[in-house]
Write a protein that binds this DNA or RNA. Structure first.
Length: 431
RNA sequence: GUGACUGUAGCUCAGCCUGGUUAGAGCUCCAGAUUGUGGAUCUGGCUGUCGCGGGUUCAAAUCCCGUCAGUCACCCCA
């Protein structure tokens, strides 16, 4: 059976072929996300992968349905696999907003779905790091969230030479629009024109702008000026105080396609421009009120960072971890008469919390050793019987090639005291 | 939904243009030998509906049509 188009199998390293997705790399990315969120005081939440179709049409309009993975369930309900996390989060926050002190700092790593032909960096399914800050209107919240975005990427080894956060503001464009647009023109059409500015030829952009009565030159001049609004200046100042200024710049060329953003918006891009946006987000102060039918009114902002483009970038920059498998020890059983003693030691070590593997059945020693290397073991352990009938262990630390003889009771201590497995280091790409 | 390119062994590919015995190579894997602080080396072995379906032909991996899948771009962007 083939898997569905646009969906992925995740294999353990080493990968079976060039295009395979790595379960180990995925874990590495998730761990960086979770650990960074933890350092920032964000709490993890989650919701259902399947939601009522209405949850998405209410916010974005019916035209979004064409992009959704949706169907009618056996109970006759119109349902959709979640294409984004924000509506779920807004529902959860609105339902229990009195229970949590503000601001809420929450994150999730949902698997999201969309129904469309796949292309580079875009499949029908992906995992997305979502972090949101709810209940704080001050730009300090924007700065905190953007700092989290930056440090999430830094946690994976990326630097200011690899990526930049382009910071913009719906408020700035709103003011520009009101100042320049023909009366009766709709802001959304204008935002669409700005959103496509970098991808479309100038004539196409001009045609879009003609519809709202704004000359292209005025738009270009506004973007080139790059003058931060007071709220953007606040955000930049707070990021600068953290030493994160090299990772961010004002760039009004970013506006975000989504209709619900209300204030600062931002996108993270790789510096070489080879990939799609790594992450994007912004402030959506009205959304929770709208989704809760006016019951709850909380300012909020958030971002999403997908695993697909990020994995591509990490491979491109050779930031994939070198070794993924990690075993504290592999128990070599070259003398089958020592198998019972080996199993007893195996159990002792595992109960002590050590990661230990061993050959299930008798095997030639070179095969055992090769398997130990495949599994990324730090040590090998081999039992020996002395002429007097005593059983002791030979513990070898592979990286240093040092070996020592130890009583069985001391093996766990030696495994712990030896240098730990090397931290993930840059390595040559698999391909 | 539209278009372009690509589908041959577990992996990477050759063969296709110009149809013609039994479809190949390297790597991996398995077995044996050898080595015995070692991913080496040697020998042997397994593995293919040539993506799938149809057509042309005495004969199709090879030419034609369709289809499915992959890759990339468009559309859209959460």
């Amino acid at each position: 059976m083939e898997r569905l188009p646009g969906f992925r199998d995740f294999y353990p390293e080493p990968l079976p072929d060039r295009d395979a997705w790595s379960a180990d790399l995925r874990h590495h990315i998730f761990a960086a996300w979770r650990n960074t969120a933890r350092r920032y005081g964000f709490r993890e939440y989650d919701g259902p992968p399947l939601e009522p179709l209405d949850l998405y049409t209410v916010k974005s309009g019916a035209e979004i349905v064409g992009q959704l993975y949706h169907f009618t369930d056996k109970g006759g309900r119109d349902v959709a696999l979640r294409p984004e996390m924000t509506p779920t989060l807004a529902r959860m926050a609105a339902a229990h907003d009195r229970h949590y002190r503000k601001p809420l700092k929450w994150f999730a790593i949902p698997q999201l779905f969309r129904y469309e032909r796949q292309q580079k960096g875009r499949l029908r399914e992906h995992f997305q790091f979502n972090a949101d800050l709810i209940g704080e209107a001050d730009p300090a919240g924007d700065a905190e969230l953007i700092a989290l975005l930056i440090d999430s990427l830094r946690a994976l080894g990326l630097t200011a030479d690899d990526f930049v956060v382009r910071l913009s503001s719906r408020n700035a464009w709103q003011a520009f629009f009101e100042q320049h647009a023909r009366p009766g023109a709709t802001p959304y059409d204008f935002y669409q024109a700005i959103d496509k500015l970098e991808r479309d030829p100038p004539e196409a952009t001009q045609a879009r702008l003609d519809a709202v009565g704004i000359p292209l030159d005025a738009v270009r001049h506004f973007i080139d000026s790059g003058q931060p609004t007071p709220e953007l200046a606040r955000i930049l100042a707070e990021l600068g105080a953290r030493g994160l200024a090299p990772f961010v710049r004002v760039d009004y060329g970013v506006i975000r396609g989504l209709a619900y953003y209300t204030g600062p918006v931002f996108e993270a891009f790789d510096r070489h421009g080879k990939f799609r946006a790594l992450a994007g987000g912004g402030r959506y102060d009205d959304l929770i009120k709208r989704l809760s039918n006016g019951r709850v009114d909380l300012p909020a902002l958030g971002f999403g960072m997908g695993d697909v483009v990020l994995a591509e970038l990490l491979k491109d920059r050779r930031l994939r971890p070198d070794r993924f498998a990690q075993l504290d020890a592999f128990l070599l059983i070259e003398d089958e008469s020592l198998r019972p003693d080996s199993l007893q030691l195996l159990q002792t070590l595992r109960e002590a919390g050590l990661a230990v593997d061993y050959p299930l059945v008798a095997a030639k020693s070179d095969k055992q050793f090769k398997r130990a290397l495949d599994l990324g073991t730090v040590h090998t352990v081999r039992l020996e019987r002395t002429p007097e009938g005593q059983v002791h262990a030979r513990v070898k630390h592979l990286a240093s090639r040092s070996e020592l003889v130890s009583p069985l009771a001391e093996v766990a201590r030696h495994l712990r005291s030896e240098p730990a497995a090397p931290a993930p280091a840059p390595a040559s790409p698999a391909a």
